[in-house]
Computed example of a mutant assay.
Amino acid sequence: MMRLGIIGTNFITDQLIEAASHQDDVQPTAVYSRTEEKAEEFARKHELSYTYTDLQAFAESDYIDAVYIASPNALHHDQAILCMNNGKHVLCEKPIASNHREAQAMFRAAEESGVVLMEAMKSTCMPGFKKIQENIDRIGKVRRYVGNYCKFSSRYEAYRQGEVLNAFKRELSNGALMDLGVYGMYPMVVLFGEPHKVQATGTLLNTGVDGQGTALFTYDDMEAVVSYSKIHNAYAPSEIQGEEGSIIIPDISTPDELTIRFRDGSEEELETETIYPAMFYELYEFNMAIEQNLRGSIINTPHNSLVTSRLMEEARKQMGVIFPADE
């Protein structure tokens, strides 16, 4: 039984605990929050046995084997390393760190402590993504990957009214690329590896973070386009475009209801067999890596996370988005 500690008390942690309820060998047991009131409220809601407002005590707890981190991006590095230095495995929300340097330090700490560190990118662990990998050869030579994720944020509505919430705070290493752009970039890296060139543009808000952006990635014989936004919606799907057909992905963040459209005009729906909540699959992958004494996930590998962090940092800096963590 993996006893899981939780850092963060937001809707994402609610979803993670819901996913854990479908796994007999995972038991959420504890929560850390900066305030006792929030910790107690969250613990009551999810029937957790232990609450902490001292992060050191949380990291040292004998009642926790692994930790799920869903705090603001700027806190991932310090919190993860503290937990790993105390022998805790860590499942860390995407993006795993503010920048590439922090991500490197986190994976070094995991290696030195002999624990698993995995980036919580749910999409690449889902049955739909495996179905994409199994069928990608059927569309012939891939010439273009399009990762499209544009979703108007309720927090942007507050921003337009003059209230800056965490999602648009530079000091927390936030913005559209970090929140949504990563959903397009990470699967690209898993499928095609590291590109040779990155070209990025974006729209900056007055807080110093990006509201929207587009990144073009150049490979030997293909290109990839990732577009993302928190300040408007888009309804176009994502696609993997090959010489013989295309795989249509309606929602890049949760690959499901996939279709292959072949060059001859025929179509085929791909059955994805998504039985459990979306976050079930990343938690299952994390737990399997621990149980099998692996050095990390075989899907969301350290290499994939490090390459993605480097690409995101380069794209961010081309747009002029610099975080305090970079300085």
Rank of each mutant, 00 (worst) to 15 (best):
T51I: 15
T124R: 05
D65T: 08
M118V: 11
K122Q: 15
R295W: 07
T124W: 08
E273Y: 15
A325C: 05
N304M: 00
K122C: 13
I249S: 02
E314H: 00
G202Y: 08
G5W: 06
D179T: 10
I275K: 14
A20V: 07
G181A: 07
R310T: 01
E273C: 09
S305R: 03
F11K: 11
G8P: 01
K94W: 13
M2H: 02
M319W: 09
I290A: 02
I260C: 06
L165T: 13
Q15H: 13
Y50G: 00
R316C: 10
A278D: 15
A289W: 04
V142D: 10
P95G: 10
A167S: 05
L117I: 12
E268N: 04
E239D: 11
V225T: 14
R144W: 00
G211Q: 10
K130P: 05
A59D: 00
R144I: 08
S173C: 13
T272L: 08
M118K: 06
G128E: 09
I252D: 05
Y145L: 14
S309I: 01
L172F: 11
R143M: 14
G175Q: 04
F42W: 09
P250M: 03
E273Q: 11
M1L: 03
M312R: 08
S154E: 00
N166I: 05
F262G: 02
D65W: 00
E47T: 07
R261S: 10
D78F: 06
Q133E: 15
